[in-house]
Computed example of a mutant assay.
Amino acid sequence: MRHPNERNAPSVVRAVELFRERIRPYQLAWNDTGDGQAEPFDDASWERTRRKTLAPGPGRSGSLMLEGKSGTVDDLLVDYRGPDVIPLPYPERADDVCVLYLRLPTEFLEERGAEQVRALALELAAELPFNSGYVDFVLCSARGDEGEALKLIRSRYPGVHLAASKATMSVNTWVDGVHWMNFLGQPVLGKLGGVAGLRECLSLPGISLQEMSGDRVLITLGERPEVGDVEVGQRLQPHRALARLLEPYLYRRKPLFPFSPPIPEEVLRWDRRFLE
């Protein structure tokens, strides 16, 4: 969301409240208070965090991080980063935008089914002034561990997205890859000729387009997220068609800081695997 926190925060708070309600009996258990400490997450904790996100104070960004019981990468996570000014007045952070990252455990998909996950994503996205967003089956990794994580999927499962374990802010208005559910807004949707232009270019079976309010669209590839098992001949042709269309607007990972290690070339190649 390439808007400052002041505009996004009310929508983000509503989306998080909906998320908490819709995922029950799954529950968020811990609240990262932002000072290196975590407190048990309850209604009082949420009220404090909600107020801080809505009105963080002069010169302060809105943020929240809520975790499941285990705090591991296969558990629930809500991570919102909301700069108070966009773009930020620092060259190395000129691409930072507000990001809401929501993670569900795989068990949620298995128990509720893909249709309920899709309905939840649509309900949440409708609350947010997004430029882009996605829903997918992902393998999460901490920064610096992407190469090790990639070894688990590279030879067999091109449908699995290699995702960071927390929100990535440096996406500007680029599109973060090709996924099962692809939410597109401006400016990329306009550059593609709007919904009419998408319909003309994306006519393969398995691709559905759903117009959303605010000149936005949802592109869904198949009935459920597919891992793309190459051993059974899955080619994920809808993913490849969308990747070709989005190629000029795809996000390219970059180090968190100028002094951080470079992103491994094999990881960058994986992000462009549907273009090969």
Results as ranks from 00 to 15, higher is better:
R60I: 02
V85N: 03
G82E: 02
D84M: 09
L104G: 10
G68L: 01
S45H: 03
Q116A: 15
T49H: 04
A94R: 15
E148W: 04
P87T: 01
Y101L: 13
D84V: 08
R93S: 11
V135E: 03
P129K: 05
T49Q: 14
S63R: 14
L66F: 09
C140I: 03
G133C: 11
N131L: 02
Q116V: 08
T53P: 00
E92T: 01
C98W: 04
D43K: 11
R143P: 09
N131K: 03
V97W: 04
R112T: 01
A125E: 06
E47S: 14
P87N: 02
E107D: 12
F108A: 12
G57K: 09
V135L: 06
K69I: 06
E107C: 10
T106G: 10
G59D: 12
L122C: 14
E111Y: 05
P129A: 09
L54E: 05
L109T: 03
F130Q: 00
G68H: 10
P83C: 06
L100D: 04
G133M: 06
A142F: 04
G144E: 08
A119R: 15
V73R: 14
S61F: 12
P58K: 14
C98N: 10
E127M: 03
G113F: 10
A119V: 02
V99K: 05
R143H: 07
Q116K: 15
L66V: 01
P129T: 07
D74H: 13
D79T: 05
S63F: 13
L139T: 00
A125F: 08
W46R: 03
E127Q: 13
G68C: 02
A55R: 15
